[in-house]
């Protein structure tokens, strides 16, 4: 299990993980990086990882674009709601947590993972016995969420003012809308390719 976790942590530095890590980080920042939404994001990512292991569903073609449009709408709503709740410092509560979890699941469907040794073993073995691979996949997904959790902790340590928090949330929301907008326009492959070329030369 540690091997899976470690491989996932290493993979977060590779472009194939960016379309998982970046959107979820932006979503968490948009909602103010509160603990409950960060936890919801991690839970959503783990759930998405289980769906991946089960080979149950993939978002591609028109479904990918549709999901991206939905994500744009959700992010815009969350950004607006965060702004409205400015005095409270951040978007919080069960509705935001559910929305974040759902967006995290969608992000795992955008993701095209690096299939290294550990993830490869999990996916291979899941064909003959799914249940036994879920702990390993859970560990893997926790590993992919390390940057997300770290970002949320940094925000908590820095404790930005309400105004700064609003700026961070709005910027993250805008960036998230741009990313999901690019996907909605059918630029998924372009994004992945650009990230790949950018990081690997």
């Amino acid at each position: 299990m540690f091997g899976a976790f470690a491989e996932a942590v290493r993979a977060t530095a590779q472009p194939c993980s960016f379309l998982l890590v970046v959107p979820i980080t932006l979503i968490v920042l948009t909602t103010g990086a509160r603990r409950c939404v960060t936890a919801a994001a991690v839970v959503g990512a783990v759930a998405g990882g289980w769906l991946l292991t089960a080979n149950w569903f993939v978002l591609d073609g028109v479904w990918l674009r549709l999901s991206a449009v939905c994500a744009m709408g959700a992010l815009a709503t969350i950004t607006w709601a965060s702004h409205e709740r400015f005095s409270e410092g951040a978007a919080d509560g069960p509705i935001f947590a559910w929305a974040v979890a759902a967006l995290a699941v969608i992000s795992t469907m955008w993701w095209r993972p690096c299939v290294g040794h550990e993830l490869g073993a999990i996916l291979t073995n899941s064909q003959s016995g799914l249940a036994h691979q879920l702990p390993g996949m859970t560990a893997y997904m926790f590993g992919t969420m390390v940057p997300v959790v770290a970002t949320a902790l940094v925000v908590e340590v820095v404790a930005p003012s309400a105004r700064q928090r609003l700026w961070i949330g709005s910027s993250a929301g805008a960036l998230g809308i741009v990313v999901s907008g690019a996907l909605a326009l059918g630029h998924h492959h372009l994004l992945v390719r650009s990230l790949t070329l950018w990081t690997s030369g």
Partner: peptide, 27 residues
């Protein structure tokens, strides 16, 4: 949060130090 962040950083350092090659007995 600071303690948690330091702990998380320590975990990442351990992962980097081990190279992540620890065999998973389930694998």
């Amino acid at each position: 949060a600071l303690v948690a962040l330091v702990a998380l950083a320590a975990v990442v350092v351990v992962v980097a130090a081990t190279g992540g090659d620890t065999a998973d007995p389930d694998a």
